[in-house]
């Protein structure tokens, strides 16, 4: 999509990757907006390669058993539960 205009098909494809269902009018609106925004992002081509000497240190800690959220609290916000588990939709 970088060299061509963004097509509605492109938007549909990305929406399916992101698991967001869109209405036809949203697809039409996003198609135009994405073309403008991605064209603007293209100017990143002018950025030189930069040495990235990140000063990172790993933060390690010993494995220790400690209290965490109990399952009752963890399930409190779930729309559906069954036998102390989250209940999700069918996998296929």
């Amino acid at each position: 999509m970088s060299d061509d205009a963004v097509t509605p098909e492109d938007v549909r494809h990305v929406a399916s990757l992101a698991r967001v269902d869109l209405e036809d009018d949203e697809i039409e609106q996003f198609t135009g907006q994405f073309a403008d925004i991605l064209e603007y992002f293209e100017t990143l081509d002018e950025v030189p390669a930069v040495d990235q000497d990140a000063e990172l240190t790993n933060v390690m800690e010993p494995d220790e058993v400690r209290d965490s959220l109990d399952s009752e609290s963890a399930l409190e916000n779930a729309p559906e539960t069954e036998d102390g588990y989250f209940k999700g939709p069918n996998v296929s």
Partner: peptide, 30 residues
């Protein structure tokens, strides 16, 4: 008979507003 993906996509369609959808989609694309 909705499967996992269809149910998620529907929940996210209903729950997110335009700007959030826009950023999730553009981020997924990038």
């Amino acid at each position: 008979n909705d499967n996992w993906n269809e149910a998620f996509s529907q929940a996210r369609k209903e729950g997110f507003g335009d700007e959030v959808k826009r950023r999730i989609l553009l981020g997924t694309y990038a």
